[in-house]
């Protein structure tokens, strides 16, 4: 996963519901030095009985914000979606060099 262009990742999940899986796995896909490289990561836990489904927000350097509802996606499509935009940014960065 390309994390170079992310400025903020906000994950919100209720670990006791099955829809927490994509959000939790997304956090594990971030490399160990992601915080040192200028991405802020916020993790917040919902209480056990909350009906709210898990969500993930990703902000990019160009200002684009992506908001995912984790009950409808799986981790594969999450990463695909995020990477699609990152690749565009990568391309623009390569051309401007």
């Amino acid at each position: 996963m390309i994390t170079k262009f992310m400025t903020e990742v906000t994950a919100k999940f209720n670990p006791f519901s099955t829809c927490a899986k994509p959000a939790r796995l997304f956090l594990t896909f971030l490399p160990p030095n992601v915080r040192a490289n200028g991405t802020t990561v916020h993790t917040s836990l919902l209480p056990r009985n909350s009906p709210e489904s898990s969500s993930l927000k990703v902000k990019f350097k160009d200002g684009k914000e992506m908001d995912f509802n984790c009950s409808k996606t799986n981790i594969k499509s999450l990463i695909e979606e995020v990477d699609r935009h990152s690749r565009q940014l990568q391309k623009a960065a390569d051309l401007s060099e």
């Binding site: 670990p15 006791f16 519901s17 099955t18 899986k21 594990t28």
Partner: peptide, 10 residues
């Protein structure tokens, strides 16, 4: 059944 959803990821 309650703890099963926790068993995800590292």
């Amino acid at each position: 059944a309650q703890i099963e959803p926790l068993m995800v990821g590292p």
